[in-house]
Nucleic acid binder design. Structure first.
Lengths: 322, 322
DNA sequence: CTGAAAGCGCTTACAG
DNA sequence: CTGAAAGCGCTTACAG
């Protein structure tokens, strides 16, 4: 049913090697032969089989992507960015979702190994996956972490969380806020908060969760703004504030972190620090393919700058005192 | 670097065939040999290569999934359901996003064909993809449409939209509503609306879009409820109603269609008809693999029943008159 | 119970 | 410019 090189060769009375060379445009084949081969190939809708090619080259041009199954939304755009970049390079993207429960993960790893992927992108906690990494390394298959901190000795392509944290507090400062609550849920981001707070002379509080933040914002009337851990958390906090009679942004400003469709809804109009999710996926693929195709390439970590998305949950206040 | 059957065979002084049989547990190999082979395989972390196997069996155990690139959220859970089912059957899932612009699509199709997928799932408009289907059919590769209407002669695994439409109007009827606005954006679903309206003796209006629906709801105070085309549309309508001083659900009830995280937010608490998205993906994979592995299997369309998710945008009203 | 051979679809030297 | 051969990693008959 499927047309192979051999069948084309037989029909044209040439050797399979000639057909192979002609189709790939390798120089040194008579122009007439090339034309006849290409015509017949088109007529029969011949498509080169990856399995023949891969067996020979030891490269399948397949890359794997492992991502958490529970987080239903966050990784979608990253995945799509990865998929688009992958396709544009003539690679295929093999996706595996990891659900809690280790058995499942080991099965996914074996599946990817069996399918002979050339490299792997991981958007999953490194401590879950650490133990499996040598299985890829031993086979010379590169691994890149995307949007998640990498295991020791591996490359990470992630948002510049320090910068994002800095930008959040800087933005609030520029709108007149002098006492701001941060979240320590992501250490690097809070360090960015702290650096900006120190630089601009802002007082910075710590919260451990949405509930904790809400409690502190309600208890202490000095806080005029919150730099939240995520958009979801920002919305939860805004919801809690409003239920408790506080206005957002008139009484308290809130800035999120992530971007995506949710904060865009007219009901929310959430000001946020937006991650470049499509680019995270794209850059991870670029780095991985570079490593696959060029063994001498020394990969480096990449930290993508998030961008301020100004909407309507941050207000300018006139600082009392100063 | 990578350990092959041959290397194991050489080290054990047996033939590759013996190693192959031993590893797969084919009966007729001396138990001692099986043990020695398996031990060495584990020691070297031998993993059977799909390319060798596939070349031989003409099946890669890879399936493709083509989905639209613009709709960033709707297909994620379907895709994940598909991925989980795929993995549990020891298949790999090759994902391709289709963005507007035909070149891109043809490229994706060629990519999937090259990668020798055993079958294809499509969540894309059939008229975009029609012309490429013979390329799969001619190669004996089954194609299943998932969550989208299928091309002539192909199988579809989709939500039972008629039932969903019926359920929406039935639900509103049971809450006392007697004049309801529907949406004709999805024909089958509106036919379900209409069937319920007729059965319960409810008056049913037509709207063409969110704006149109809002206009009609505001203009005609007789409508007490809206069966929306989607959750997004439902939220847009609720937003518009509230901005115009109408209360939801006290003045107008609104029921969505889809399910997902958005409507669950406490700000919305959207009552909706929820599609079984994970199951749509799973069922599509099941049908496809059945077709791949059993050529005699005659696939059938599947219509998955959506479920009512009662939240807070539908209220019971006391019908004036009756 | 085990090995030698052939072959799946390709590509890469090599010979002519 | 073209063909014959060998080989990539496996599995499937077949012979012994």
């Amino acid at each position: 049913m499927t047309v192979t090189l051999k069948k084309l060769a037989a029909e044209l009375n040439v050797s399979p090697a000639t057909v192979s060379l002609a189709l790939r445009g390798v120089p040194g084949i008579a122009p007439g032969t090339v034309t006849r081969v290409k015509e017949l190939a088109r007529k029969y809708d011949y498509v080169q089989s990856n399995i023949g090619r891969a067996l020979q080259s030891r490269h399948t041009r397949l890359i794997g992507y492992l991502l958490p199954g529970i987080t239903r939304t966050f990784f979608n755009e990253i995945l799509q960015g990865a998929g688009e970049e992958t396709a544009s390079r003539n690679y295929g993207l093999l996706v595996g979702w990891v659900n809690p429960g280790d058995e499942h993960l080991e099965h996914q790893i074996n599946l990817l190994l069996e399918k002979d992927i050339d490299g792997l992108i991981i958007s999953e906690k490194y401590h879950l996956i650490d133990r499996y990494l040598p299985r890829f390394k031993n086979r010379g298959k590169p691994v890149v972490f995307c949007s998640n901190k990498a295991s020791e000795g591996y490359v990470e392509i992630i948002t510049d969380n320090f910068y994002g944290g800095y930008l959040a507090v800087e933005t609030l400062f520029k709108h007149g806020h002098r006492k701001i609550l941060g979240s320590v849920e992501l250490e690097e981001r809070f360090r960015g908060n702290a650096a900006a707070a120190e630089h601009f002379g802002v007082e910075l509080g710590k919260s451990l969760s949405a509930e904790d933040a809400l409690k502190k914002l309600l208890a202490d009337n000095q806080y005029t703004a919150m730099a939240a851990y995520s958009d979801d958390q920002a919305l939860d906090i805004i919801y809690g504030l409003r239920r408790n009679g506080r206005r957002v942004p008139e009484d308290v400003s809130v800035i999120g972190f992530n971007g995506g469709a949710l904060g865009e809804r007219p009901e929310f109009q959430l000001t946020t620090i937006e991650q470049q999710r499509l680019d995270l996926g794209r850059c991870a693929v670029k780095s991985l393919i570079e490593q696959i195709e060029n063994p001498d390439y020394v990969p480096v970590n990449q930290y993508l700058k998030p961008e301020l998305k100004m909407r309507k949950t941050v207000a300018t206040i006139t600082t009392g005192g100063a």
